[in-house]
Amino acid sequence: MATVLVQEADFDIGAEIAALRAGRTDIGAIVSFTGTVRDLDGGLKAMTLEHYPGMTEAELARIATEAEARWPLQGCRIIHRFGRLLPGDQIVLVITLSAHRQAAFEAADFLMDFLKSKAPFWKKEETEGGAEWVAAKDSDTDALDRWP
């Protein structure tokens, strides 16, 4: 059963994986993806994530349920932060567990593709020049075509 958390607080990848594995010997593959605040040119001061409380959790749960229907997962956890984050901070964590690696890899990839196009989060970047909302990329929407 997938679990979804939307929180301001940071997360500990090792602790999250340990909790999902605790007491189990049937898991053969664990994949985790962590998204972090990127500052390629040194100009980013901070990034604030706004979200739609209620719908965010519902949408992430819908995406996780879809992944569980497509792949034989033995565990799945999604954590997404909101609020003001600094360059290098962790934003999102997806962990998938399965008996075999292919299901775990593919499910994590699927979850991130759908999260980026469906989960109601909006990023605002602060630089010396002011603050601006990040524009969505067509490539993120196009990525959904990978999962017919």
């Binding site: 999102v92 980026k116 469906k118 989960a119 109601p120 909006w122 969505a136 929407t141």
Partner: peptide, 29 residues
């Protein structure tokens, strides 16, 4: 647009009892 916390298209029906959210394309992850 989301109606009652679900993404919908422009032709989706709306009622006076609905919660309707309007926003730009999402940019999380």
């Amino acid at each position: 647009v989301a109606v009652n916390q679900t993404h919908v298209g422009l032709d989706h029906a709306v009622k006076d009892t609905d919660e309707i959210a309007i926003f730009p394309p999402v940019t999380g992850g």
